[in-house]
Design a protein around this nucleic acid. Structure first.
Lengths: 190, 190
DNA sequence: TGAATTTCTTGAAGCAGTTCAAGTTTTTTA
DNA sequence: TAAAAAACTTGAACTGCTTCAAGAAATTCA
């Protein structure tokens, strides 16, 4: 059912059967249709989302009114706005499903009670967020050092199937160039 | 002595006096001269650094041979390469002091033993890294939506003193534009 | 203090990627 | 399955920023 999250947790820490029971009774899987919003700009984010099926994204609407995707979350990724979550401040971001999804929706109060019952989970979330931060640093490195075409090819090599899964304009904005330019890169017209 | 780190930890979790003793006996403060390297590209990063005085930075050398700063760490910031640290892979980054510094140097084996003795520390590091990740997301947002001049002005408003503390070319690369362009922005010649 | 090094400045030429506008293709939905 | 909506393509004009080169200013250190 939500075996995916249990499996993911157990990649990083060891759970006994009691702890597994606690988790199973506190965690539910939600089906979310394509293009639904999990978070909108201006809302305080009180929830963490773990994608077990499908794809979600975090995006902003820039001053020109265009959407720009900052992050994708596919199977086995957490997505949330940690700043809004920790500081109880309005979020700068939208979080939206890109495909029909199955998502573990974990409210702050539920999570905090789980963390008290199973303190080991702190370690799990520590490792996950440290790795995410490391990935964000690499992302900034690529944005800084590669041309638009290099970023596209690099991404395509790393995630060959994913390129097919999302609209090209979303991927273009994630890689920080325009949809039109993406079209030219793909046609070899650069 | 290293009160700074204890204070920082106690902003997020509560420690009893025994735990404080354990920390005090395992943590030492190192003086590091300006421009010394804490990590070089290609090394595996086995250490976390907490800056209590001075300033350090994480940077890369891009294909043109120019340094580009990805992150600054001033007082009360942790700096490390989490991907290298967790995966035991060679780092893509340099970490270097920018000023004479006082730094808590925490080796992986010491940290792991501390985390066993004081499991609560997992929560501390979780919160710190989640906030760092949140900050990295905001950084990407600013890089995506603001012009070079806007990024400079925004940074100057947020961190007015810091602008004076580091060479302008380092700040320029952190904000993702050239040192020459920084010079023109500051002179109002844009 | 004086020499060496590092950092900052300036202008001119160039270009990687944007913007705009219009048309085409694909996907969704009633 | 037809109509509407969403996504993609193309070329032409444009621009924000880079690159290069050379000199000036500031900082470091013997």
């Amino acid at each position: 059912m939500h075996a995916a999250l249990l499996d993911h947790i157990q990649k990083f820490i060891t759970l006994n059967s009691e702890e597994i029971n606690i988790l199973e009774s506190n965690i539910t899987l939600s089906k979310v249709k394509k293009k639904e919003h999990l978070l909108k700009e201006g809302q305080v984010c009180n929830t963490m989302y773990f994608v077990t099926k499908g794809c979600a994204r975090q995006y902003i609407i820039n001053p020109k009114g265009t959407e720009q995707t900052l992050q994708f979350a596919i199977e086995n990724w957490w997505i949330t706005d940690y700043l809004s979550y920790h500081n109880n401040t309005p979020s700068h971001f939208y979080i939206q499903t890109v495909e029909n999804c199955e998502i573990v929706v974990l409210e702050k109060n539920v999570l905090e009670s789980l963390l008290i019952q199973i303190p080991k989970l702190e370690r799990y979330f520590k490792i996950v967020s440290q790795k995410s931060f490391g990935a964000a640093q690499m992302r900034i490195k690529f944005l800084f050092t590669m041309s638009a075409e290099e970023r596209y090819n690099h991404f395509k090599n790393q995630q060959p199937d994913f390129v097919q899964r999302v609209p090209q304009y979303m991927l273009a904005s994630y890689l920080d160039f325009s949809a039109e330019f993406m079209s030219k890169i793909r046609a070899g017209k650069v």
